[in-house]
Design a protein around this nucleic acid. Structure first.
Lengths: 193, 193
DNA sequence: GTTCCAATCTGGACAGTGTCAACTAGGTGG
DNA sequence: CCACCTAGTTGACACTGTCCAGATTGGAAC
């Protein structure tokens, strides 16, 4: 067979795994991950309610996969942000803003990354681990370049971004307020450098 | 009747609502709120699977109630923390540490407060609203007293605590690391004051 | 004290879910 | 050609949230 994944509606789908992930990611735009039903995803992909079990161990398996996808997207957003910035501080502001923005605008995708029953605490997937490391590294590197290089600075930065993003996504304040508070905090932290 | 809520196993329970909340809070110690089943709570309270509907509109109703309880406990922890501290800065450190500690040690209780489908975004319960306001106020007041009184400082503090607590609860780093990073961040923020 | 009511609790029913088991279609290697 | 494996199927089971109709009660009105 020349094209194994192009069959339109044959008995063998060819790439059901990614098709299911696609469908789940689309559902994730409209509802939180905890409410996504495996059968609903299967329906959206036009397969029987049991087909997913040949590609994912169980419901959590699928959620894990879309958590990895979401994390990859977040990392990509943060990585690419600030590419046109001229100073290390502008880069830091841009990357942090991208993090917060992602948390608010893609809140369900952001949340699924941190569901403890999905991404098992302290034992990340082989795919997830480097993504987390990458995110930590990119934040720490930007912070360090801007002068926030004391021990704990990287952790505090991550915490600040994560908290502002989460609280803003929960509508405790608007995205603008969060972004402004972030910039102000950077301002304060760098005042003494 | 002299004691209306002391009936051991009568047909009428007397205070089923709070008994159900008690049971739910207990389950919350061992599993996240999203996995708590209404029937399981009813079973734990020794009533039929339908009894809860006479006290809560639906599953979300019960979750809302335990979210309010959790928030009240968090507020109490933060309020009472630092009572023996001598300087405004020590108070700020104590209250912030209490917030982070609650997020880690009572992670499910902490999480249920912020489930968007439970505590409807922007439209908090009549019971929840003053609790949120109280928490914001107590944090802002402590921050202000310690010298963090510029616009955005209170928001940033809340975000920092929330993020460090959440990430630490998700085992991205330990509680000690989070607390240390928090103290260091306060240190940095107050250096220029 | 009897009667009646509204609140409370019970059981049964229904659709929907996750998951297991058994079955079938279709391509692959011998 | 046949045996086999993978990816899909239907069927079943226990569980869930929620609606409905009935049973039980405590207390209020008379």
């Amino acid at each position: 067979m020349l094209l194994m994944s192009s069959s339109k509606d044959g008995y063998h789908h060819g790439s059901l795994a990614s098709a299911l992930e696609d469908a789940a990611m689309q559902l994730l735009e409209r509802m939180p991950a905890t409410e996504i039903s495996l059968r609903e995803v299967a329906r959206a992909a036009n397969v029987s309610h049991n087909a997913p079990y040949h590609h994912f161990s169980d419901r959590r398996g699928l959620l894990k996969a879309i958590a990895e996808r979401s994390m990859a997207e977040l990392l990509e957003q943060v990585r690419s942000a600030g590419a046109d910035a001229s100073t290390p501080r502008a880069v830091l502001e841009a990357k942090g803003s991208a993090y917060i923005r992602f948390a608010v605008e893609r809140s369900h995708a952001f949340d699924v990354i941190h569901i403890p029953t999905v991404c098992v605490p302290g034992a990340p997937t082989a795919t997830m681990a480097p993504l987390i490391d990458g995110l930590e590294a990119v934040l720490a590197e930007s912070a360090g370049a801007a002068g926030l290089d004391r021990p704990g600075d990287d952790i505090a930065l991550w915490g600040l971004l994560h908290g502002l993003g989460t609280l803003s996504a929960a509508k405790h304040f608007t995205l603008d307020v969060a972004l402004t508070a972030y910039i102000a905090a950077i301002d304060r932290a760098l005042a003494g450098v």
